[in-house]
Computed example of a mutant assay.
Amino acid sequence: MTTSRAATDPALRVLTWDVMASGGYETCWAEPGADTLRARGRAVGLTPEPYWISYTLETGEGFVTRRLTVTAETAARTRTLDLRRDDAGRWTADGERLPEVDGALDCDLGLCPLTNTMPVLRHRMHRERGEREFLMAWVSVPDLTVRASRQTYTHLARTGGGGGRVRYASGTFRSDLDLDADGFVLDYPGLARRLTAR
């Protein structure tokens, strides 16, 4: 008889989303600590073209990104990305410097609701009033191009079970995210909705 790790490790969260924005799904295994987050996940999508990706994420203290590795496969090709942030706040992609995102604390993997979690947890945005502006190292899917992205998170309300509602804004895009007590996305209108086992 095999026992699943999720059943034996209470810190491990298994999260699955219906990602409407891509016409696909994502599942990740997340290990939140008191001040850190590790995760690995896989996703499939149809938009902007059929693809599948796998990723691993590691943060340091304060939920600050240390490393994101991504593999994306389409019918035409396979791409990989090794995105890293050092202790001085400098970013590299596959060893090449990315000065346009220097100083950013977080990566943001496109079409991935998991990567909204780090800034929320760092500033307790799902539980405490406030508005924060961030510079993100945003990764486009499936081409894995890294760009600087300015984003704003605003606490809107506490919700049942210790969760909260947070408004995400970037450019002209706005969406009000529902988050659980651990800061993980339950509902991201226009992008994804979490699924539960029946």
Rank of each mutant, 00 (worst) to 15 (best):
A104V: 04
R127G: 15
W91L: 03
T159R: 10
T59G: 12
E133V: 02
R67K: 12
D106E: 09
D102M: 09
T152P: 09
P99Y: 07
T145M: 05
V120P: 08
T80Q: 11
W91A: 03
A76H: 06
R132G: 00
L68F: 14
A75W: 12
R90Q: 07
A93G: 12
E61C: 00
G110S: 15
L135N: 01
R77H: 09
R77K: 07
T56Q: 15
R66M: 08
V44G: 12
D82F: 15
G130W: 13
C112Q: 07
R66H: 15
T152I: 10
R42Y: 05
T71H: 10
W91D: 03
E58I: 05
L121F: 00
R67W: 01
Y55W: 15
T78R: 14
Q151K: 04
D82P: 10
L144T: 06
H123M: 06
M136D: 02
R84F: 03
T152N: 02
R122S: 09
R150K: 11
G60M: 00
G62Y: 09
C112G: 04
R77L: 10
T47Y: 03
G103I: 10
D87F: 03
P113Y: 05
T56V: 11
V101L: 04
T47C: 03
D86N: 12
L57C: 03
R127Y: 00
A43Q: 04
W91E: 04
E73N: 05
R122W: 02
C107R: 12
V141F: 01
S140K: 14
G62I: 01
T47D: 11
L156N: 05
T115K: 01
T159K: 08
H123W: 14
R97I: 05
L109A: 13
T56C: 10
R85T: 00
R127T: 14
R67N: 06
A137H: 03
A88T: 08
L81W: 08
R147I: 06
D82H: 13
A148S: 13
P142T: 04
G110A: 14
A148L: 07
G62M: 10
E133R: 15
D82C: 04
